[in-house]
C-alpha cells in the first residue's frame, strides 16, 4: 500500500482526506502535518510515497514547502489540494515547481483517488 502524508492546517480537511485514503484500500495515511515546515520534517521521518498538501496555510505555505521538498527529495510526489486551484497563476506555479497535479476544493473522493492512482 502506498503511504500518503496529508498537509493542511484545517482539521476538517485532514479528516476528509484521511477518510478517503483509509477507505480506498490502495493507500494508507502516515499522518497529518499542519503546515509546510511540519511537512518537510514528516517527509523525512515518515517517507511517504505521496504528499497531499494545501497551498494556503499559516506559517510556511504550501508553495514554499513544495519548493524545498523537491530540492530535498528528488523522488517526492506532491499533489496540491487547494481552494485556489482555479486561479491560473497559482495552478501553473505549482506545476512548474514540481507538483504532480492540483486538486481543487471542494473535491470528491473519486476525483482524489483517480489522481492519486495515476501517480
Amino acid at each position: 500500500m502506498k503511504k500518503v502524508l496529508v498537509v493542511d492546517d484545517s482539521l476538517s480537511v485532514a479528516r476528509q482526506l484521511e477518510k478517503i485514503i483509509a477507505d480506498s484500500g490502495d493507500f494508507t495515511s502516515v499522518g497529518h502535518a499542519k503546515n509546510g515546515a511540519e511537512a518537510i520534517k514528516m517527509n523525512h521521518t515518515e517517507n511517504p510515497d505521496i504528499i497531499c498538501m494545501d497551498m494556503n496555510m499559516p506559517g510556511m505555505d504550501g508553495l514554499t514547502a513544495l519548493r524545498s521538498l523537491v530540492v530535498l527529495d528528488k523522488d517526492v510526489k506532491v499533489v496540491m489540494v487547494t481552494s485556489l486551484g482555479g486561479v491560473g497563476d497559482k495552478f501553473t506555479e505549482a506545476l512548474k515547481l514540481g507538483a504532480k497535479n492540483v486538486i481543487s476544493k471542494p473535491f470528491e473522493a473519486d476525483n482524489v483517488l483517480q489522481i492519486l492512482r495515476e501517480l
Partner: peptide, 26 residues
C-alpha cells in the same frame, strides 16, 4: 465541483499531461 480554468480541467481529467500544459503556458 469547483471554479477552474481550462488548463486545470484538462490536466485534472488526464486529457493533457502537466508537461504539455507547462509547454503551452511557456
Amino acid at each position: 465541483m469547483a471554479v477552474k480554468f481550462f488548463g486545470q480541467f484538462l490536466v485534472e481529467n488526464s486529457l493533457v499531461s502537466r508537461e504539455a500544459l507547462i509547454k503551452a503556458i511557456d
